[in-house]
C-alpha cells in the first residue's frame, strides 16, 4: 500500500527535485570548478580552491555581517510596525477599507521604482529632507555618502516598503481570533493591555512566525533595493551577499566563485535557521517545564 503513496507523490517530488535540488547540486559542482572569462568560460576542475578563497575572502565575511545586520534591523522594525498597523487596521474605524488599501500601496510598488524614489528623497543636498533641514538652518544629513548612516537609510527604505506586507499577514491572523474571547476577558475585568498580551499575541504567534520566515528569507537575499539605492557603497558598507555574487557572475564572469558565494550564504542561512529553530524548541520546552 505504501508504494502507492509514493507513486501519487512522485510528480510533486520530481518537481521539487528539479526546481530545488538540481540547481543546488549544479552549483555544488560549479563551486569545484574554475569557470571564468580566463578559461574561455569552460569549466576546469580545481578542487576545493574556491572554498579556500571564500574562507580567506574578507569581503565575503564583511558582506555576511552587513547582510545579517540589514536583515535583523529591517525585519524586527517591520514586525513591530507591522503589528501596530495591523492592530490599527483591525479596529472598526470609518473608511477602514480605504485605509487598508492605502496602507498596501508601498508594497505594491516595484522595488526598483521605490528605490529610485528613496534615492531622490535621500539626495544630498537637493532631496526634500535635506532641503527642509537647510530651510530650518540645519546641516544636511549624508544619507547615502556616510558608511555609518547609509545602511540605516537602506533599512528605512526597506521597512517602508515591506511593513504593509507584514501588516497584511498579521491582519489576516487577527481576524481569525474569535471576538467572544475578548468579550469573556472584558467580563472578567481584563484591561485591553492584558487582552493583547494574553489573547492576541499568543494566538497570533503562528502568523508572526510565517511573516518572520518570509521576511527573513527575502531580507537575507536583498539585491534590487541595494543595487539601485547605493550600488553597495559608500566604502562597500551596504554591499549584500547577493550583490557580491551578482558582481562575480555578471560583471567579472567568474561563475565558479559566484556559485561558491551563493552556497556559502546558503550555508550561513541554514545554520541561522536551525539555530533559531533549536532555540525556539528549547525555550518552549523550558516554558512547559516552568508551568
Amino acid at each position: 500500500m505504501r508504494w502507492r503513496l509514493w507513486l501519487l507523490m512522485a510528480p510533486a517530488l520530481a518537481l521539487l527535485l528539479a526546481v530545488f535540488a538540481a540547481p543546488l547540486l549544479h552549483y555544488l559542482w560549479l563551486s569545484t570548478q574554475a569557470q571564468t572569462v580566463l578559461t574561455g568560460l569552460r569549466p576546469q576542475p580545481i578542487g576545493a580552491q574556491q572554498w579556500l578563497r571564500l574562507w580567506n575572502d574578507g569581503r565575503f565575511w564583511q558582506d555576511t555581517w552587513q547582510t545579517l545586520r540589514f536583515s535583523a534591523a529591517s525585519v524586527s522594525l517591520e514586525m513591530l510596525l507591522g503589528l501596530v498597523v495591523a492592530l490599527l487596521l483591525n479596529q472598526p474605524l470609518r473608511g477602514r477599507a480605504l485605509l487598508r488599501t492605502i496602507s498596501l500601496l508601498p508594497w505594491a510598488l516595484p522595488t526598483t521604482v521605490m528605490a529610485l524614489g528613496w534615492r531622490w528623497i535621500f539626495n544630498d543636498p537637493y532631496g526634500p529632507i535635506n532641503r527642509l533641514l537647510a530651510w530650518l538652518g540645519l546641516g544636511a544629513i549624508p544619507f547615502l555618502s556616510n558608511p555609518a548612516i547609509t545602511w540605516m537609510a537602506a533599512v528605512g527604505a526597506d521597512t517602508w516598503k515591506t511593513t504593509p506586507f507584514v501588516a497584511l499577514l498579521l491582519l489576516a491572523g487577527l481576524q481569525t481570533i474569535p471576538a467572544d474571547l475578548y468579550e469573556a476577558a472584558a467580563l472578567e475585568g481584563a484591561t485591553p493591555w492584558q487582552a493583547l498580551q494574553r489573547i492576541t499575541l499568543p494566538l497570533l504567534t503562528p502568523y508572526v512566525l510565517i511573516a518572520l520566515l518570509f521576511r527573513l528569507a527575502q531580507a537575507l537575499g536583498v539585491f534590487d533595493l541595494i543595487q539601485v539605492l547605493t550600488g553597495g557603497g559608500p566604502a562597500g558598507s551596504t554591499e549584500s551577499l547577493a550583490l557580491y555574487a551578482y558582481l562575480n557572475a555578471m560583471r567579472f564572469l567568474d561563475f565558479g566563485y559566484s556559485a561558491t558565494l551563493l552556497l556559502g550564504s546558503f550555508a550561513i542561512l541554514l545554520l541561522l535557521c536551525s539555530t533559531a529553530a533549536l532555540a525556539w524548541r528549547w525555550s518552549s520546552r523550558l516554558q512547559g517545564e516552568l508551568r
Partner: peptide, 22 residues
C-alpha cells in the same frame, strides 16, 4: 579581461578614502 575586477578593487578602496574611513 579582468578589468572589471581591477576597477572594482580600485574604486571600492578610493571610496573608503573619500568617506574618510581609511
Amino acid at each position: 579581461p579582468v578589468y572589471a575586477q581591477l576597477s572594482d578593487l580600485l574604486y571600492r578602496e578610493l571610496n573608503t578614502v573619500i568617506t574618510g574611513d581609511r
